[in-house]
Design a protein around this nucleic acid. Sequence first.
DNA 1: GTTGAGCGTT
Length: 541
Amino acid sequence: MDFVQVSEEEGDEPIELPAEEDGTLLLSTLQAQFPGSCGLKYRNMDTKAVRGVRSNEGRLFPPSVDSGWGEYLYFCVFPKENKRKSDDNLENSTAKTKRIETRLRCTDLIVLGLPWKTTEESLREYFESYGEVLMAQIKKDGKSGQSKGFGFVRFGSYDAQMRVLSNRHLIDGRWCEVKVPNSKGMGHQVPCKVFVGRCTEDINSDDLREYFSKFGEVTDVFIPRPFRAFSFVTFLDPDVAQSLCGEDHIIKGVSVHVSNAAPKAEQNRNQQGQSYNYNSANGFGMPAYHPQGGSHMNPGRNGHHRGNNQHSAHGGGDNSIVANSHGSHVGSAGYGMGGNNYGGNSGGGYHNNGSNHSSGGNVNRQDGSTTYNRQANFHGMNQPHNGNVGGNGGWMNRGHLDMPNLQALGINSQGSSSSNQGQNMNNPSMLNLNSLPINPALVAAALNQWSLVGNQLQNQNQDQQGGNFLSWMAQNGGHNANNNNSNFGGRKGSNNPNNPGAGGINKADNSGCNDPQQNGNSGWSNQSSGSQNSVEKSNFL
DNA sequence: GTTGAGCGTT
């Protein structure tokens, strides 16, 4: 087997990636090691110039037919950064780093369970061991001045924030919980995920990833199984996602339609009084998954939090939910469109209602080899700007759902809510959880994204398991990387330092599950002519 | 003076 030496950047230590039998390198293989990368380049020894590697249909082709990949050291190509307004004036920073910094902004963190005696000074002092503390405050009773037992803290670096979120905290003698707050007004999000309709079965995740990587970094691709003629593509940049909505694109000769895949969490949120943590930085590496004290989820290289790793419950590099489909079906035949009527979903069913058509018209773009750098173009839409939080200069809440917050998943120790039982009885099972041979947490991540947890739990219950999500998790515990006490849902009710409540999912919250009042009101702007579609869709988002 | 799930008089 031929190996290709690839590094993230020129000069970095290369990783040897296995090529395929035909000598090509799968893009998915590359992306497994370098999430977010979309191509390769190398420096030509003779001309000293950098040359790009040919890429087509999810495959990268060696520069030479005869000598293959040769002895070149290849390095990754990442999607160009969309030009941003005010974030580009950072010095001493590569475009890539800039992008990441743009994405990984800090947010205020709530500190729960503080001792009454803790002061803002001692709070700050405690957290300064993690990094620069920009703000530390204790919420107090207005009259008495007595602490309410919680406060907020904000860090100057995302790395510090992540470490704080990853660890337990003994503050002034009491174990405290640090989370991203669910504060009101923080719940809106700019969706990063788009719905891709009219897909044919031969369009696999690699195809989608490769195609859409032209517009920006793709962090996830999800194709429902069994085949349902649509899929979801998640971008790192919500602006990119928005800019594509309403458009038709041609992938492998098939005209697919991209439209808004805004989760219907909004309704759930309002109804349940529970705010999803769709906010800003919460998309990356949230606390519940990193119970190990001192473990650095991001040991110095933010770039590794892109792409597949965003699904990684344990920071492992290979936990991509997309990975399952990598390497399969690539290059399989079956182009062609028309005549394929998949379950009544194809044809005319995916008109967007219009509210989210943002990018100045539904321009059809042919699938060319050009790299599109879409300009952000969602301002003035229905996405609120929660600007200038903490004076950090106009960041917006983003719809990054990549890293699940199981609290927000609506998972509790009783499994899905009984009040929802029966809601999905007539719903087709869209995902067989057992068919996804991956870390359950990653499935949860996916389910979180698409608010599928409730459905799946119930389908699962009926169809196979007879248990709840937790039991399923337990049964599949072997997949739970490292098995190191994944602390889904935090440590509620476990102030005992010796019992950090590992595995405790205590949040009684049905968000994400379907609710009787939700059905038929999908919050999904695609209108379908099919009678069944609205139900299916409403279950999906 | 008490208390221990929560979500911020900005």
